[in-house]
Amino acid sequence: MLPYMFKYISANWTTLSTSDHGPYWQSLRKGVQGFAMNPSSISSQTLSQEKEAIAMTQKIQEQAAVNGGIVHPIDNIRHNTIRVVGRLCFGPDFNNETFVVGIDPFIYDIINIAALARFADAFPFTRYIPGLRGPFRKVAEIRDGIVSLVEPEITRYQSSKSPCTTCYLHFLLSNGYTMETIIFILFEMFVLSVDSTSTATTWALAFLIRNSEIQHKLFKEVSGGDEKRERVTVDQVSKMPYLQAVVSEVFRMKPIAPLAIPHKTVNDTTLTGLKIDKGTAVIINIYAVLRDPKVWDEPERFMPERFLNENALSDRMAMERSFIPFGAGRRICVGMDLGKLQVGLTLANLINSFEWLAADGDGPDMTDDFTIILRMKEPLVARIKARTNLGASLF
């Protein structure tokens, strides 16, 4: 039920998110869970994640030093996530900065072109009008660019004397998928991971800039006191309840895919008395569910405390049933746990290292830019103060 245009960057709809439920889809899903998202695969790169979080904060500090404290953090956060996903896909020795920098614009462009893809579906004749075929040519260019970046990494893996046997690429090659399918299954991993984690992190920073008391409370937790830690580790992140509450509240307020990936009914069914035929496209309004005033007290207010164990049991149960920012059911986001971990680790280190302030008097623009991802309309621009000591600043 995805746009026709997407067939060109999904190997004719043979990737995980574009294929119908069945044995083929189940095989791909098991491959992701058993290899790329296997707990041991994720835990094996903990040290690399922590080192890159520190490297990211250093790059942001360098950017601030030459711009009077002003930073645009999104690119550093995106590149950091690409490296994490790259190791899960290609193995722990993945270290190709040309790939990291090169794949990012293609991910960004595919998300941007989603709205045009829907337009082409609504008016199929536009595929054949020369003046309106620009988006299709753009997708073809993106497709060629993706192949030129991903295929060499596959070749490198195949020529390795000791290839990783726990990465996702090993599973795909071992199961005989075509080269085209492997390339775009791997690319899909980046599409589904990079925007979700980087966008959630920048939304989090924007909310914290606008809510200085919450930012201070979070800093007290992540730092363990009044001065910054040397670094925040993965193990420490899992033991920070207020950080987890902040991350959950960000996902509630700004769900990354507010209408989720389109579903399709596999049988004739009914919903609240309405007959729904087999094969009907079903769109779930996750955004509305996460702002339902019957479930969420003051749903328009950024309030991480709602996720702490201070509410009545009945209220907590209602919130747990309604908290579906990653979807639900069989096609719930397979990278949910990694996504929450990556956002938590990145955010914790950014808050530990810097105080985040508005770049101007108005504060960050919280306007949504909705394609299939709920991005910020204006990418976050902020002013930072380094937390070398309590209240100290390098800028």
Rank of each mutant, 00 (worst) to 15 (best):
D235R: 10
E213P: 12
D277A: 15
T98P: 02
N311F: 09
H263M: 14
R127W: 12
F307S: 11
M1A: 15
T46Y: 01
W13K: 15
I111V: 15
E62A: 04
G224Y: 01
D144P: 05
H21K: 10
M303I: 15
F94W: 01
G34R: 02
H79Y: 02
H72Q: 14
R231I: 12
S212G: 13
L380K: 00
I183A: 11
V85R: 00
I351S: 09
Y108F: 14
T346E: 03
F395H: 10
I110S: 08
L290E: 06
V101C: 07
V85L: 11
T269L: 13
A115L: 11
V381H: 03
E378S: 14
I146H: 05
T269V: 12
I276V: 08
K340S: 03
D368W: 02
T46K: 10
G327C: 04
H216A: 15
N267H: 15
T98G: 09
T126R: 01
I185A: 15
L350A: 12
V71F: 01
V71A: 05
Y287L: 13
K59N: 02
A328L: 13
I209M: 12
G31Y: 02
K254C: 13
S148Y: 00
Y168M: 13
W296N: 10
A288R: 01
I351R: 04
K278M: 14
A114W: 07
K377Q: 14
G134M: 05
F307Q: 11
L47R: 03
P73R: 02
I154Q: 03
T166G: 07
G327W: 00
L47P: 01
P163V: 11
T57Y: 02
A122Q: 00
S238L: 10
H170R: 07
A36S: 09
F219P: 12
S43C: 08
L243P: 06
T181V: 08
S248R: 06
R78H: 07
N95M: 11
T388P: 11
I107S: 15
R231W: 04
A348R: 00
N76Y: 11
D362G: 13
N76A: 14
I351P: 06
G34T: 05
D195G: 15
P364I: 06
G329S: 04
V232C: 14
H72I: 14
S193N: 01
R301D: 05
Q342H: 02
